[in-house]
Amino acid sequence: MKRSPMAILWNVLFYLFVVAIVVYAIFPFYYAIVTSFSTGTALFEIHYWPKVFDLANYKNVLFQRQFPRSVLNSLLIASTTVILALFLAVTASYALSRVRFRGRGLLLMVILAVSMFPQIAVLAGMIEMIKYFGLFNTPFAMIISYTVFTLPFTVWVLTTFMRDLPIEIEEAAIVDGATPWIIITRVFLPLLWPALVTTGLLAFIGAWNEFLFALTFTLSEDQRTTPVAIAMLSGASVQEIPWGPIMAASVIVTVPLVVLVLIFQRKIVAGLTAGGVKG
């Protein structure tokens, strides 16, 4: 069967459109990589294709600045926040998804509302609290304040995951006389691992990218997180913006994220759409 010219034309147009979407999505990142390998005058000429391969920008960022320290800060803060949130969220979402009690719907709404909170609304109160506990300009300031968005998010996603687990396993455990705590740790936790990994990864990305709290609660360069460090990266003078090192730093913090996201692609999409679109 020969295809009509019209169908072929539509096919070509369709694929052109697909290519346009892909270019639109990845070009800025591609261009950041190209720029990060350019130095001197090459930086200020426009190249659509990689022309030079110079690691000077990476050396600058990794050895002449406090940037590696910022990466360590971010790693420490994001992983602590995520572990804390997951720990608190597992038991809470068991109660929210498997036990009927009055006001459950309202409680779920409140948790969702907190995750949608404008962070600026808690900023003033948070500054007071952080200063009261003497945590200003320490990683703990971020670990505490990031809980405001990681915790409701993890509770929310884990609750929707747990709702969909079959009721029969739990019934069997109850008949055997298992307490709710045993049910969570022995029955649910092994089933929840994939969900925990996905949720943890999403919360980690959120904490890794956070800017407002990190900008407000850090003062010295060695306490900055990576987003703040990149935003504040400065040159020899105020007018001179070090585009090369900025792009190198951007590529350094983005590549691991992109790799993680591509590995966990399907799970991430499931996690993002959980709750919102289901039901």
Partner: peptide
């Protein structure tokens, strides 16, 4: 684009 931090 979604995976790239906003600041970046």
């Amino acid at each position: 684009p979604w995976a790239i931090p906003t600041i970046v």
